[in-house]
């Protein structure tokens, strides 16, 4: 295919992607440092970023993202790994159980949020008070775990299926216990999959929106950066500040992913080589 042919195939998709993702993403950065007043651009520099770093509400929101990430590591990734190990053998029962545990992942987060909101509703719900101050982040993480553990289970099942049978056979012949087989054989061979799961969990925790928006409409405790910036923009009328928060969130997710990819690769390679 000629160069021109390649370009013709490539361009339409790239144009849509550039116009509705790359251009607005760039514009968000511009909006956070320049403000338009009566048709004239006014340079703000890093003023809004300094404001954000000093803003207690933003600090708490970012902290909530972090706490949510740590809880979801447990309720999504670790729970998913345990489900995968438990349902690893390919029996008919296990095939059915996998289908059941994955099922919540196809539901809309709006549905998940509202159903659990009704279940935990103050006064009438089956488990009232679970979403109140103090419990909010733990409960929303548990709900996320319910919705996504099956998804991570499938990631890990894929990794487990890739472990060569003779390696497990060798461990069996050496008399390794189930725990030893997991810790010394399976987990090291799963490192590639583990690090993918960690990254998916990390980006998911900082990109979160739907569940928090639906469950905590007016609750400080359940505010994360993703919901705070939308409120700043649409409800509190601070578009420039909202843009700065968007830019910070984008930077956290992007830098975290790239650094995480590098660090995890390096760290995992080293720790397992030295064993």
């Amino acid at each position: 295919m000629s160069r021109r042919g390649q370009a013709l195939f490539f361009a339409p998709g790239m144009l849509v992607f550039a116009l509705f993702v790359l251009l607005p993403a760039t514009q968000t950065w511009v909006d956070s440092v320049v403000v338009w007043k009566q048709g004239r651009a006014e340079w703000l520099g890093l003023g809004l970023y300094k404001m954000a770093l000093a803003d207690g509400r933003f600090q708490r929101a970012l902290g909530s993202n972090l706490v949510y990430f740590l809880w979801t590591l447990l309720f999504e990734v670790v729970a998913g790994l345990m489900l995968a190990l438990g349902l690893e053998r390919n029996t008919r029962w296990n095939q059915w159980l996998r289908v059941i545990f994955f099922a919540p992942a196809v539901l809309s987060m709006v549905v998940v949020g509202l159903v659990f909101g009704f279940l935990f509703k103050d006064g009438v719900g089956l488990l009232p008070g679970w979403l109140n101050e103090g419990n909010a982040l733990l409960t929303v993480s548990l709900i996320s775990g319910w919705a996504s553990a099956g998804f991570f289970m499938v990631i890990f099942l894929g990794g487990l299926a890739g472990i060569p049978e003779d390696v497990l056979e060798a461990a069996r012949l050496d008399g390794a216990s189930a725990w030893q087989t997991f810790w010394f054989v399976k987990l090291p061979l799963l490192r590639e999959v583990v690090y993918v799961a960690l990254l998916v969990c990390f980006t998911g925790a900082f990109k979160a929106f739907d569940l928090f928006w639906v469950l905590f409409r007016n609750q400080e405790e359940g505010t994360i950066v993703g919901t705070l910036l939308v409120r700043e923009f649409f409800q509190y009328g601070h578009p420039a500040y909202g843009s700065a928060l968007s830019a910070i969130l984008a930077a956290v997710v992007t830098a975290g992913t790239i650094l995480g990819m590098k660090a995890l690769r390096w760290g995992l390679d080293r720790s397992w080589r030295s064993r």
Binding site: P24, A25, T28
Partner: peptide, 19 residues
């Protein structure tokens, strides 16, 4: 393209509305 896919939707939101 990979960077675009890990970017949060919120990072494009307000200019997207203007576009």
């Amino acid at each position: 393209i990979f960077l675009g896919s890990i970017l949060p939707v919120q990072a494009t939101l307000f200019p997207l509305i203007r576009i």
